[in-house]
């Protein structure tokens, strides 16, 4: 449920950049290596944005795939597990081993290139004044 705190952080970031105007959309880049559940984030965002400049804003989440690079051979790979295989696909040998954070070729620990993002990329503001009741600091806590 850290999506509640992250939702608040996204609202705070958007408000900080909104120059006192109403926020109509927020574009967020969310990496696959972050354990943030998008539906949960959207749910809490609706709650923590109430009665503030971000109320009703469209939270647009762009998912960023994960990729690692080997510092030795410079190969790149995705350490995220593949989608769940069906029972028939798994077969008698069991599921394939999960991808490692070590280089599949030379065994060096990989450096994260993408997938760690939790970034407010941009916001869209409206020249319509925020409603009378709007207070920038509104939070659940």
């Amino acid at each position: 449920m850290h999506e509640l705190a992250i939702g608040s952080a996204i609202v705070d970031t958007a408000v900080k950049h909104a120059r006192g105007q109403r926020v109509t959309a927020i574009d967020v880049r969310l990496g696959r290596l972050r354990q943030v559940v998008p539906d949960s984030l959207a749910f809490y965002f609706d709650i923590v944005s109430r009665d503030g400049p971000c109320e009703g804003a469209d939270l647009r989440i762009e998912h960023v795939d994960s990729s690692l690079r080997c510092p030795a051979c410079w190969c790149e790979w995705d350490p995220a597990p593949p989608p769940m295989a069906t029972h028939e696909e798994v077969g008698a040998d069991g599921p394939p081993p999960l991808p490692s954070f070590r280089c599949p070729t030379c065994n060096e620990p990989g450096k994260v290139l993408t997938g760690g993002e939790l970034e407010v990329e941009s916001i869209e503001i409206s020249d319509e004044a925020p409603s009378e009741t709007a207070t920038p600091e509104t939070q659940l806590t």
Binding site: I6, A9, I10, D12, T13, A14, H17, A18, T24, V28, L118, E119, V120, E121, S122, I123, E124, I125, S126, D127, E128
Partner: peptide, 17 residues
Amino acid sequence: MHRTKIKVAEDALDANQ
């Protein structure tokens, strides 16, 4: 009503950091 896009490019947890 006029809408303007503002580039932010900021880690959402920047305040915590």
